[in-house]
């Protein structure tokens, strides 16, 4: 049974990490706390839902569409909305993101109603067993693989490509980056697009595993936020460590103390991390 709880926690952590990775990127590079992150996950989930329901496109295939569409959306929002206030204090961007969240959620509510929907795929609940006591849900395992893949992809983009160098340059020294000819507005928009694209991927997997509805974003934002704080900013490994830490503590915590306490445990860890390591488990010290 302990092994099963461990696996439950690890797989849940993988999903949390995937949710948080985009938020971490945007936060780390642009210092924007994207409160609307969960709403973008919701949009990704609905892209998958509609492609599957209307056109019969396999949810895993729709990953390309949800990532692509949300990348474009994220690029547009950053370029033509957030860029106007990016030099203002952090509170202004926070309020703007909050506004975007309310707007998206209510637009979705009007367009799709508050109905709870479900992508009904045959393999949604597929699993395989190891011995009598351990059952591994396949989709969650795939999600786990995907988060590692996406993290590696981000790592590659940030460290090995021209775009990545521009992103890191703007985050390290804005004026310096401008001097060497980096188009800052464009770079920021691409970063935001990448972050939101990752939210789209998380949305697709969420839609395969859980029922979806327009108001689901709030709690997802909160979880992503906790994961980013726990893991620490500035490293692609941060959200993974944070996600796994949260997944495991929730899983063991709710086994030992009862399910109502799973949120309490998550937030206790958050407070502890803030006290002991304010920069997160992997965050640097300054």
């Amino acid at each position: 049974m302990l092994l099963q709880i461990l696996i439950n926690g690890l797989l849940k952590g993988g999903l949390y990490a995937l949710m948080a990775i985009g938020m971490s990127l945007i936060w780390g590079v642009m210092d924007i706390i994207n409160i609307a992150h969960g709403s973008f996950i919701m949009l990704g989930a609905f892209v998958t839902y509609w492609l599957f329901t209307l056109l019969g496109i396999d949810p895993f295939l729709s990953l390309f569409f949800s990532v692509g569409l949300l990348f474009i959306l994220g690029y547009g929002i950053q370029r033509y909305l957030i860029n106007y206030v990016i030099r203002a204090s952090a509170f202004i961007t926070l309020i703007l993101a909050f506004g975007i969240e309310i707007f998206i959620n209510n637009l979705a509510l009007v367009a799709w109603t508050a109905d709870v929907r479900k992508v009904e795929v045959a393999y949604g609940a597929a699993n395989f067993s190891i011995g009598h006591w351990v059952t591994i849900p396949t989709v969650r395992l795939v999600a786990f693989g995907l988060v590692i893949l996406i993290s590696l992809l981000f790592f590659f983009i940030l460290n090995r490509t021209h775009l990545g160098r521009s992103i890191r340059a703007t985050s390290q020294d804005l004026d310096g980056a401008r001097l060497v000819g980096v188009d800052v507005a464009h770079t920021y928009a691409l970063t935001f697009g990448l972050g939101i694209g990752a939210a789209g991927a998380a949305g697709t997997l969420w839609a395969i595993l859980f029922p979806i509805s327009p108001m689901m974003g709030g709690i997802l934002t909160l979880r992503s936020f906790v994961v980013v704080i726990i893991g620490g900013l500035g490293s692609m490994l941060g959200p993974i460590i944070g996600g796994l830490a949260l997944g495991l503590t929730e899983s063991f915590g709710s086994n030992w103390f009862g399910s109502t306490y799973s949120d309490l445990i998550g937030f206790t860890i958050l407070v502890l991390v803030l006290i002991i390591r304010p920069k997160g488990i992997l965050g640097g010290t300054d």
Partner: peptide
């Protein structure tokens, strides 16, 4: 006899207990 938070999405711990 166990309570969970309203709106909970994850039941894997509870299900593991039911099984055991």
């Amino acid at each position: 006899f166990e309570k969970y938070s309203e709106g909970a999405t994850d039941f894997t711990s509870l299900l593991t207990k039911i099984k055991s």
